[in-house]
């Protein structure tokens, strides 16, 4: 593959909670401490066109405002998980030494990205989950039967 430098920055540690400096990019969500923590979408960067400061607009639109070019008042807005699903074709595993089970899960974040993870279950939790899923399966079968 031919190589060319990309202006993409590496992950800025938002989801990891690390203290990597926040360098806002176009389209990033940021809170502005100079505006009582107001959240905005970065729509212009200092040095691009005539902009000498960061320009932000409320998500979905609204009156824009500026933030200093050094970005000291801006902080990233952490992404949130909206739900988790079971990835296809990955079996749950039981660890006899730890006496716990693990089920692969996929976390869906509100920015459209996903993260792989595992759901760890102790023996008590396994029993509880078994009861719960059995109940749900029964309800599901009744629901299907009811519609036929």
């Amino acid at each position: 593959m031919t190589r060319r430098r990309s202006s993409h920055l590496p992950s800025q540690g938002v989801e990891l909670g690390t203290a990597a400096p926040f360098v806002p990019r176009l389209g990033d969500l940021a809170t502005d401490s100079a505006r009582n923590g107001r959240v905005g979408v970065v729509v212009a960067l200092p040095g691009e066109g005539s902009a000498t400061t960061y320009h932000l607009r409320p998500p979905g639109g609204g009156a824009p405002w500026s933030a200093p070019a050094d970005g000291t008042t801006l902080r990233p807005v952490p992404v949130r998980a909206t739900h988790a699903t079971l990835p296809a074709g990955q079996d749950a595993v039981y660890d006899p030494r730890a006496r716990q089970g693990s089920i692969p899960v996929k976390f869906h974040l509100d920015d459209g990205s996903t993260l792989d993870g595992v759901l760890i279950l102790t023996s008590v939790e396994l029993q509880w989950l078994h009861q719960q899923t059995s109940r749900l399966v029964d309800t599901h079968e009744r629901a299907i039967g009811g519609t036929q």
Binding site: H8, S11, R25, L26, G27, D28, L29, V41, V43, A44, G49, R57, P58, P59, G60, G61, G62, V79, L109, D111, G112, S113, T114
Partner: peptide
């Protein structure tokens, strides 16, 4: 992870920031 970058475009579209 690239879908996350697409989300930046969604936000810019919603603020009608076509140049960005």
């Amino acid at each position: 992870q690239l879908w996350r970058e697409v989300t930046r475009l969604h936000r810019l579209r919603d603020t009608a920031s076509n140049v960005a």
